[in-house]
Amino acid sequence: MTAEHLTPEDRQSPDSLSPPDRESPDSLASPDRESPDSLAAAVLARLRTAFPRAGVSLRTNPGPAVQHSLLVSPADLCDVCRFLRDTPDLAFDFLSNVSGVDWPDPSKADAVAAPADEQGTPAAAAGFLEVIYHLYSTRRRIGPLVLRVRTADRLSGVQIPSVVAVFRSAEFQEREIFDLYGVEFTGHPDLRRILMWDEFQDHPMRKDYVAPDDYEYEPTPHAAVLEKAQRHYVQP
């Protein structure tokens, strides 16, 4: 910006953007950015006191990223999100990312997000779909707090309550997960397909999705490609 548009008093020292003073003295007072595991555990303790009967359990991440997560039961999701957003010393006001994951093999899901304590529910018998939320706090500058929610199965019990009423940023992301994974977000204001066209039948990001073979002729003579093309375009 040229000088005429920026008065000297507008300039601020670079350290004025340092995190604001963290006021509350509890376990969350100084969450360490480098170890979100303490974050998930601390938030879990708060949630257990606030919602004694809520189905929330800690899931540990075996990888080097140590972003541990909280498995939330679908029924409690909206309450938990609202609590996380509105409690002043938590203030998770920013839902950054919503991912859908397909787990046809539930044991794999429990390997990536291992149950940490006695409340960890045992692995489901059938596969399920999972939605993962990454929450941050813009005011307290902490995160990510990872929440995971699982559907009952992959066929008919694919309902999860929508969090759009709490976090508007989930609107398009939930639509995308509905489109690509088939998770039905109950209470979503406008649940339509977003990336695929409306008449599309399947959910392409599911692991068992079979891609159509009706693509255009491709000259690379890969055996599989050629075979598929020949199958589709029956030679006269």
Partner: peptide
Amino acid sequence: PPLGEAYARIEGPKGELGFHLISD
């Protein structure tokens, strides 16, 4: 990569660009 998941983000020119990866 070892088993696990990671979410990382950077300040892209257009905003927060994040990648969420799960490795089996």
